[in-house]
Amino acid sequence: MRRLFAAFPGPLPVRVLIVMVALAVVLVALFFLFEWAGDLLDSGGVVGPGQ
């Protein structure tokens, strides 16, 4: 983890910023992944042509 952090370009504040942006992207991606996979478990029970 430290090696990865050290491999980021730029001074410390820039690297911290990169890590924060990367974390945000991962969290958003996880949210959408969970929503999509959650529909496989239980889509809400609606009946219709698009289900």
Partner: peptide, 10 residues
């Protein structure tokens, strides 16, 4: 009248 709901989540 139709009402839908989650079975295992929410």
């Amino acid at each position: 009248a139709v009402v839908s709901g989650h079975r295992t989540t929410y």
